[in-house]
Design a protein around this nucleic acid. Structure first.
Length: 260
DNA sequence: AAGGCGGTCAACCGCCTCGTC
DNA sequence: GGACGAGGCGGTTGACCGCCT
């Protein structure tokens, strides 16, 4: 017999959250702040387990969450950090404070993993092995309609619950009397701003390595010498080199700063 | 028109870690 | 130091949606 699930009590509701449930949860957290999830179901009357409440809040209702429309910058960060740390989604999410670990994990599984597979397959093919121009099938392939809808038009991605989140953001900003929430907001926004600035300035990913550059095999615009080395030693793929160089020189700096 | 199929993502499950007693 | 509970985390599932035939 395995460990019994935490939420298999009779009367516990499962499945998608309704807007009414969202409002109840949001209202409660508005008054009491996030935390002490154990007491949330009993205090709100929600027929959900504490974990479900926490997950709903952290992954969906929490203010400051950016949904959909991953930028090339963010994609690059995810690929980069995933290659460095593996599937440590929470750690990766800490470098993308506006994204949840669940969102990043989903995006990796549905989009980036495939991209990387294609990338790897292209490099493994003998004809492309030493080529500096990256396979057009990846870089120039038209995006599917659904991908375009989801990732190029954020309005279409919007949902009713996102609206709740937006409303909450407004509440967070306008409410001067709720000190606890103000602290939360400041904390979230402070982290977002500081980490964003840090990543923008230190990694400058858009300038150094956008997806276009990655896929076109031209990720070293500032260093011709490394380009030459790259051509001379084909045992490392372009992407391996990118990871090694980038991680050694830049990410360590960021991590050190975070630690200090 | 409708059924099949694949992609996407919210939510659940269960293990792990950490704090408290 | 060990037991216990709460929260964190990563893997997985299943519902939903749009496209294709």
């Amino acid at each position: 017999m395995g460990r019994p699930p935490c939420c298999d009590k009779v009367g516990i509701k499962k499945g998608p959250w309704t807007p009414e449930e969202d409002i109840i949860l949001v209202t409660y957290i508005q008054e009491h702040g996030p935390g002490n999830w154990r007491s949330v179901p009993t205090n709100t009357g929600l027929l959900r387990c504490s974990k479900s409440c926490r997950l709903r809040w952290t992954n969906y209702l929490r203010p400051g969450i950016k949904r959909g429309n991953f930028t090339p910058h963010e994609e690059g960060m995810i690929v980069h950090l995933q290659a460095l740390w593996g599937n440590k989604w929470a750690a990766i999410a800490s470098y993308l404070p506006q994204r949840t670990d669940n969102d990043i994990k989903n995006y990796w599984n549905t989009h980036l993993k495939k991209k990387m597979k294609k990338l790897q397959a292209a490099f493994d093919s003998p004809t492309d092995h030493h080529s500096t121009t990256y396979p057009q099938s990846i870089s120039k392939a038209p995006l599917s309609k659904s991908y375009e809808n989801t990732h190029q038009n954020p309005n279409i991605y919007a949902s009713s619950t996102q609206n709740i989140s937006r409303l909450l953001e407004g509440w967070m900003i306008s409410s001067a009397s709720h000190k606890k929430q103000e602290t939360n907001k400041d904390c979230i926004n402070g982290v977002v701003e500081s980490v964003d600035l840090e990543l923008e300035s230190v990694l400058a990913f858009d300038n150094v390595c956008s997806w276009d550059k990655i896929l076109s095999g031209d990720c070293y615009p500032k260093d011709d010498e490394r380009k030459l080395q790259k051509q001379e030693s084909p045992t490392l793929t372009f992407f391996d080199r990118w990871l090694l160089d980038e991680s050694a020189s830049q990410l360590e700096g960021v991590i050190e700063q975070q630690v200090n």
